[in-house]
């Protein structure tokens, strides 16, 4: 069964994570620029002496679909590449994927990954 790994990381870590995933043999990644907050919360900006609290901070979301046996290794790869040890490093979660189709060929299931 295929699994969807969703990763939220700091934008400056995206290149390292991508390189590590390619080395681990991943077939594809979907990336989007997103905004959000977790324990890190937001940050403060100051314009003309007035402080503005910016709640949503920029992050990058990576989505990777893999075959079940690979999941643990890929999650470890992501965590190792994305970790700085500081607050705001992000999260990784894994969900089941019910079905997949490769649009060009019509292949289904794990063959379509």
């Amino acid at each position: 069964m295929a699994k969807l790994i969703t990763v939220i990381v700091k934008p400056f870590k995206v290149d390292e994570v991508k390189t590590a995933l390619k080395e681990a043999g991943i077939a594809g990644i979907t990336a989007s620029e997103v905004q959000g907050f977790g324990r890190q919360a937001g940050h403060t900006e100051v314009y003309r002496g007035t402080e503005y609290s910016i709640d949503f901070v920029p992050k990058v979301r990576l989505e990777i679909v893999v075959d079940d046996p690979q999941v643990d290794a890929i999650v470890d790869t992501v965590v190792n590449a994305a970790r700085t040890g500081k607050i705001g490093d992000g999260k990784v979660w894994v969900t089941d994927v019910e079905s997949i189709v490769r649009i060009r060929t019509g292949e289904k299931g794990v063959d379509a990954i």
């Binding site: 900006e45 314009y47 007035t50 503005y52 609290s53 910016i54």
Partner: peptide
């Protein structure tokens, strides 16, 4: 204003 910010 001024509760929510209007930053540049």
């Amino acid at each position: 204003w001024p509760a929510e910010g209007h930053p540049p």
